[in-house]
Every structure is written in structure tokens, then in C-alpha cells.
Amino acid sequence: MTLKTNSRRPVKGPTPGLWARYRAYLSRTGLSPSASNYFSIGVAIAGVGLTLGPIIYLVLGGFKDLHQYAMNPSGLPDPFLFRNYWGILSTGLFWRQMLNSAFIAIVTTVGVVILGTMAAYPLARYKFKGREVLYGVFVAGLMFPLTVAILPLYLMIHSWGLVGNPFGVILPQIAFALPVTIIIMRPFVAALPKELEEAAFIDGVTRIGYFWRILLPLARPGMVTVGVLAFIGSWNSYLLPLLILAGDPAHMTLPLGVTAFKGQHGSDNTAIMAFTSLSMVPALIFFIFMERRIVEGLTGAVKG
């Protein structure tokens, strides 16, 4: 994120000596690291509690049966029943829907990142007539949510025979994720040192060669960030898969699977809680794994 002020000067990591002196200062002024840390930890615990509380409640609910839930909705399961979770995990459908979500999200992400970065390069570095208009067209896409265009979109995808096909979801998702990708990537590409480009051209590298061999590796932090955003967007999307993939549960993505499961097991709230809990797991694992990449991408962008 941002911070242009610093980006002109290369910012090195905090010098240990300086940082230590800063901490020493904090303790001198009474804001000793330990005292203020307790306060920070207090806030952290409150934040964690508010975030995790509802999720834990949902997970625990999945270990109850309906009778337990009706009698004792707020307490711990007694006994813990694994029936709900096992019932979902032992049928192939949950896994199948997870794979569908993963396939669609991965292909969408790759498509968005490649197309978006490609488009961002000339928009950032070429001087040509109509460049800002072109950029403006992409940016305007940000103002138009998918809900607005859903029926014409469906009719078009249907006429191409892509209903029930993952690519019927992937292509529009790429298109709708392009604005934010280009908005992020354009200044990112523009921030890469111009000298590098000039040096490359002097060495006889073509623009295209420069793009593939030099720009893409350098732009990786930004690409990771937009990629993660696109992945999350795709993984969570609901309306488009609802229209394109509903019908056969084997074609569904996980959010659809949750609603379909909710419909099928209407009165079995604890099974719904179990299914919902399980469908959180892949997103959370992906997130725990990628969170560092996001922050790396963000800080990388700052240091650009």
C-alpha cells in the first residue's frame, strides 16, 4: 500500500540499533514495552474473540444432533457426535464441490493475473492516443456490479452452450475482476524503475521480451496480491455459479453446495452447521497460507 513519500527513497528494513533505541525510549517514557504490550495483547484478544467466537460456535454446533441443539443451543456438545461431519466427509459430493471451487478459482486467478498485467503494461508505459479513455473504460467496470448484468450475461452464456460448464463461470469472472486488477497493476508497473526498461532496450531487448523476462518477475508481488483477491472473489462468488452451475450438485461450487445442502437437509440445523463449518476450512487454510504472501505483496509494493 501506498506511501509514496517513502518510495522515492529506498527504505531499508528497520535498523536493529535504531529500533532498539526506540524501544528503549518507550520504556524511558513510561510506555514500557511490557505495559503497552499488555494493552496491545488485550485488544488482540478482544479482536480474536469477536472473530473466532461465532466460528467456534458454528463448528461446535456441527458436533450436536438436532435434539441436543434444540435443548442446549449454546452449551458444549455432550457428547461430541461426529456423525454430521463424518456423513459429509465420507460422501464424495463435498470433495467434488471443493474441487470445482478450486478449479474455477485457480483458472480465474491465472486468467485475471495474466490478462490484467498484460493490459496494465501499455496503459502504464506506452504513450498513445486514447490511453486514458481506455483506462477509464476499465475503471468504469468497477462501478457496475455483476447483479446488474446478470440476465443478459446468462442468455449469452446459454447461447454458447456453457451452462453447467465451469468456463461459463470463469470467463465472466475474469472480465469482472479485470478493473480492480488493472487499477492495481498499472501504477505498480509504472513504479518499476524506468532506467531498467531503457537499459534493456539499449541491450536490444524488445518490448515483449522486456515484459516477459523482466517486468513479470519484478511485478510478482503485485500479481500475487491481485491474484489472491481474484481467488477469494471467485471462491466466494455466489450469483454467477448459481445461474450457471445450479442443477447438478456434482457441478456446484462450495457456496452453492452450502445452500443446496441447506435446502436438502432443511430441518437438520446441526448438519447445516457442520457443512458450513467444513466449507470454511479450505478458504481459511488457503488464507493462512497466503496471508504472508498478501502482506509481502503489500509491503513489496510499498518498497517497489
Binding site: 500500500m1 501506498t2 509514496k4 522515492r8 502504464a124 492495481i184 501504477p187 505498480f188 513504479a191 509494493a301
Partner: peptide, 15 residues
């Protein structure tokens, strides 16, 4: 999202 970074040429995002 973000990244105004630094082109230093007054080319912020979305502008």
C-alpha cells in the same frame, strides 16, 4: 485496492 505507489508522476490509481 491500493498501490498508489510512486510513479511520482501524479498518476495515482483510478484517476
Amino acid at each position: 485496492m491500493t498501490f498508489t505507489t510512486a510513479s511520482g508522476k501524479g498518476n495515482g490509481p483510478v484517476v
